[in-house]
């Protein structure tokens, strides 16, 4: 049974509304080593500034954020593929040169997401107030620097095999989209994905970027061709986009939640940061 199908049982006059979706890279180097005199890096930060203003204008009540932990909050003793943060507030790790901040958690929304997941066959792991590393804190620092918007952090395993398939990530995203629609509230929801694009982490290829893959991936999202990206093979992505490129899962999850297309706001293959940096607006088709 779809989550939305049970949500209409009973009376309700309002429902949560997905007002916008965005996806951005999350490397801490964007903050740690930002060179204002570098025109490429300046363009990236201008794009973040544009999104920051856009999100402020939207005045969302909740941000549902799909990103990845980097073996800071989770380790081999208990390692979730997908995990939702519950509670009231999480602290930042202060890793990767991104300042530690307190992040308000939209715990009631998180609980709703968990329950919708159960109904739809996603038995999501959960953690109460897990610390958040740069995967979350870097985009949030650049987009919502006041940290005054409650967040639903959803951890995606994009680093530690076996990784979830891209199809599964898209299915998760679709479930998240339905869960937002099924939410009995008048909340304005922004969806945000963090990660990617191509980058090689702690390998001899570190510093390499593959703009051919990145542009192909972005073009698929612009065309709304989710089938093309969910047909990707994990090993092939590793070869083409690096081990860090596996974070495109976060983008795929978010665009599936929006059920739509992407508008690329910025793409720069920033070799100084060793990452294909992209920012995109996601919208319903």
């Amino acid at each position: 049974m779809a989550c939305s199908s049970i949500s209409f049982v009973g009376s309700r006059s309002t429902m949560a509304h997905l007002v916008a979706g965005y996806a951005t890279s999350h490397t801490g180097m964007m903050i740690r080593t930002f060179d204002r005199e570098d025109p490429v890096q300046a363009r990236v930060h201008r794009a973040f500034g544009q999104l920051r203003e856009e999100i402020a204008t939207l005045a969302p009540d909740v941000i549902v954020m799909v990103s990845s932990d980097h073996l800071n909050s989770f380790f081999y003793d208990c390692y979730p593929q997908f995990c939702v943060a519950l509670g009231k507030e999480s602290q930042g790790w202060g890793d990767a040169g991104v300042a530690a901040r307190s992040v308000p958690i939209a715990g009631d929304f998180s609980q709703h997401l968990l329950e919708c997941g159960i109904i739809e066959g996603f038995d999501l792991a959960w953690a109460v107030e897990p610390k958040l590393d740069h995967g979350f804190l870097c985009p949030l620092s650049l987009l919502t620097p006041e940290f005054d918007i409650p967040v639903v952090p959803l951890f995606m395993n994009s680093s530690t095999p076996p990784l979830p398939t891209f199809q599964r990530c898209a299915a998760l995203g679709a479930m998240i989209g339905r869960a937002i629609e099924a939410r009995e509230s008048d909340e304005r929801v922004v969806l945000l994905a963090g990660g990617g694009l191509s980058h090689w982490v702690a390998t001899p290829e570190m510093g390499k970027v593959n703009p051919v893959f990145d542009r192909w991936f972005l073009d698929c999202l612009v065309r709304g061709d989710l089938d093309a990206v969910t047909a990707l093979d994990t090993d092939d992505v590793g070869r083409q986009a690096g081990n860090g490129g596996q974070e495109i899962r976060n983008w795929i999850t978010a665009i599936a939640a929006c059920n739509g297309r992407a508008e690329v706001l910025c793409y720069e293959p920033v070799t100084r940061w060793g990452t294909g940096i992209a920012l995109a607006r996601l919208s319903a088709a």
């Binding site: 980097h70 073996l71 890793d95 982490v201 702690a202 001899p204 570190m206 081990n243 060793g274």
Partner: peptide
């Protein structure tokens, strides 16, 4: 066979420039 993310954490803790170190040797 160390996990790449743990190598990065190790490098960060010891103030080693990971990209330069790995690319120089690689």
């Amino acid at each position: 066979g160390a996990h790449p993310l743990l190598i990065m954490q190790f490098a960060g803790a010891l103030h080693i420039e990971a990209m330069a170190s790995l690319r120089r040797e690689g």
